[in-house]
């Protein structure tokens, strides 16, 4: 199994006919993702990459049965695109766009309250379920099928973690890029929870960075949930100076509690296997799974006694 996206997902691309949308939609189709069309207002009725183009997300839902959307529209229009997808009934909305103003995301977050959908991102690489669906901009070949789930704020660091995991003899169920902005749709904790409840995922890699409290919240939840599966964690930015934005809009140390050091301390206290070096992520996961007796008989997850 996998989470969020799979072979049955009916994916549309918002911003389908733009440069980014065209390139990545092509890559997704090549990977085997079930792309059922795209949305570009004003170009409805035409075809692009041999798929139908719709004027609105509502049309794509009604006529093509779309239930997952990936958004490539420019920052000024991205908040609107997310809300349109939610209103049309899309269940999983994945927003790749980087540079959306915080004010727009405050409105989006409020708009999504009570709606039956999940937003991933923005400013993220997307989601990939190995051998099933790639709804994102990641290189598909890095994600060999296996039993490890990944939750990450960063793109290339996710590819790095997956590559190390595969080289350590393992593979990936689903990798979720949650995004590096101050306001994102799905938190680290929520993404970890999805993987914790996925029977095919035996171990979880959680990659965070400086800024905010998402990793600490996830760590506390993992502990409260009984540390059901081994979790390997890495926090980027131990060497980042305070008060400077490090590439991602959300990657900024504000106080004493959102430094890499503070986060790692909480994660360790919550039973997460924290690596200080990003070169050790794959090795640590392999060791954790080899040491974990539960993996041999996964049905023990539900009723094990420590």
């Amino acid at each position: 199994m996998s989470v969020l996206v799979n072979k049955q997902s009916r994916v549309i691309v918002q911003g389908f006919t733009g440069t980014e949308g065209t390139f990545h939609a092509g890559q997704m189709i090549e990977y085997g993702t079930n792309v059922v069309g795209g949305v570009t207002p004003g170009k409805g009725g035409s075809t692009h990459l041999e798929k139908p183009v719709f004027n609105t997300v509502k049309d794509a839902v009604d006529k093509a049965g779309a239930d997952v959307s990936i958004i490539f529209v420019p920052p000024a229009f991205a908040a609107d695109a997310i809300m349109e997808a939610a209103e049309a009934g899309i269940k999983v909305i994945i927003c790749i766009t980087e540079g959306i103003p915080v004010r727009d995301m405050i409105a989006v977050k409020e708009y999504l309250v009570g709606k039956d959908c999940r937003l991933i991102g923005p400013n993220c690489p997307g989601v990939i379920s190995a051998d099933e669906a790639k709804v994102g901009i990641m290189p598909g070949f890095v994600f060999k099928k296996g039993t490890v789930g990944i939750v990450s704020k960063s793109g290339t660091l996710t590819y790095e973690a997956s590559d190390q995991t595969v080289k350590a003899g393992l593979g990936i169920t689903t990798a979720i890029g949650i995004g590096g902005d101050p306001i994102i749709g799905t938190t680290t904790k929520q993404a970890v929870e999805l993987l914790m409840n996925d029977p095919e995922t035996h171990g979880i890699i959680m990659i965070g960075e400086i800024g905010g409290n998402l990793e600490a919240d996830a760590a506390r939840w993992i502990k409260a949930d009984g540390n059901r599966k081994p979790v390997v964690g890495f926090i980027a930015g131990e060497t980042a100076p305070k008060g400077r934005t490090m590439g991602h809009a959300g990657a900024i140390v504000g106080g004493d509690d959102d430094t890499a050091e503070a986060k790692k301390k909480i994660m360790r206290a919550c039973g997460i296997i924290v690596v200080d070096s990003p070169a050790d992520i794959g090795k640590a996961m392999a060791k954790a799974l080899a040491d974990d007796v539960r993996v041999a008989s996964p049905h023990h997850h539900a009723n094990r006694v420590d």
Binding site: S154, T156, G180, E209, T239, G247, A260, D276, A279
Partner: peptide
């Protein structure tokens, strides 16, 4: 010199772990 913000921070960290100090992001 790195591609991607997360990997760039991670690279700074690994420089430190290798006995150096990062000169930049």
């Amino acid at each position: 010199m790195v591609n991607g913000a997360g990997l760039a921070m991670a690279t700074m960290d690994i420089i430190k772990l290798s006995g150096g100090d990062p000169a930049n992001f």
